[in-house]
Write a protein that binds this DNA or RNA. Structure first.
Lengths: 141, 141
DNA sequence: CTCACTAATGCAACAATGTTGCATTTAAGG
DNA sequence: CCTTAAATGCAACATTGTTGCATTAGTGAG
């Protein structure tokens, strides 16, 4: 994505445009799948560790990125769709972790999920899946 | 659940029966929903912090309990069904966190979920949902 | 362009969570 | 009982995330 587009996204959410934020967004955008926090820290080593946490938080709150958890300690981040609101992320997708290459992918939901949970009113949900990704499956053949 | 049943579960998975393990299982079993780690630590304060981690690990590996993540820092644990194998948990259920009382419930899946993810082969999945639980909904009326 | 104001940053310190090594104790089978 | 391997407790360490505060920098107004 062009830097100007990233700046535009920041402006759209009333977030100041700073080198750190652009660096972070570029790193997230450039990574295939959701990027692990440790990788962010390694790639953005010039940025203070605390600043990284706070920058991530700003972008999370601003709805520019989202957390893609994977049922582990490590947390992952990915860019949001344009349609995401600051307070209401529109993520009807699956966070898929490949058992082989360990990448985290955000896959679209192709089925309208109807969570039938009786008297429990579901407001949001997230699906964590694991298995084998497309790339690793084709390598195996 | 009776203590004898808990012992039986330990034996079934070739795990030694120790007071710590029985305490832990009793705490998990007695809690409504999945129990947070912090609550376990508070309730089992007599147990060494490290021993708690290791005991949890043994029971996780033995398939007696499972982790119920909730897209947060805190981790939660719940008893497994009898049918769970040590290496393959049969959890086609939803981990539901109530926004009001913050309890974590393990709800059964009433719908057969067909994850249509193209060339991505799904092996396991977990659903994290949030909303309002039955108890909190009825209180509100 | 400059100024003023607020938000962002960097640093230090702290807090919470989880792990490893090692010596000691204990469960379980003979 | 006795033996043996597993479980436990303690100390130390590692990782991850947070808070306070002084300094710097982005932004909008003039």
């Amino acid at each position: 994505m062009r830097e100007e587009d990233l700046k535009q996204r920041l402006r759209a959410r009333d977030l100041r445009i700073t080198p750190n934020r652009l660096q972070l967004l570029t790193a997230v955008d450039g990574f295939v799948g959701a990027i692990p926090h440790t990788k962010l820290q390694a790639d953005l080593a010039s940025m203070d560790r605390v600043t990284l946490y706070r920058t991530i938080n700003s972008l999370l709150e601003g709805g520019l990125i989202h957390r893609a958890s994977a049922n582990e300690q490590e947390t992952y981040y990915a860019l949001c769709e344009d349609s995401c609101q600051a307070d209401a992320h529109q993520h009807q997708h699956i966070h898929f972790k490949c058992d082989t290459c360990e990448k985290i992918y955000c896959l679209p939901m192709r089925q309208d999920l109807h969570l039938n949970t009786g008297a429990f009113k579901v407001r949001t949900f997230e699906i964590l899946a694991s298995g084998q990704c497309e790339a690793c499956a084709s390598l195996e053949k």
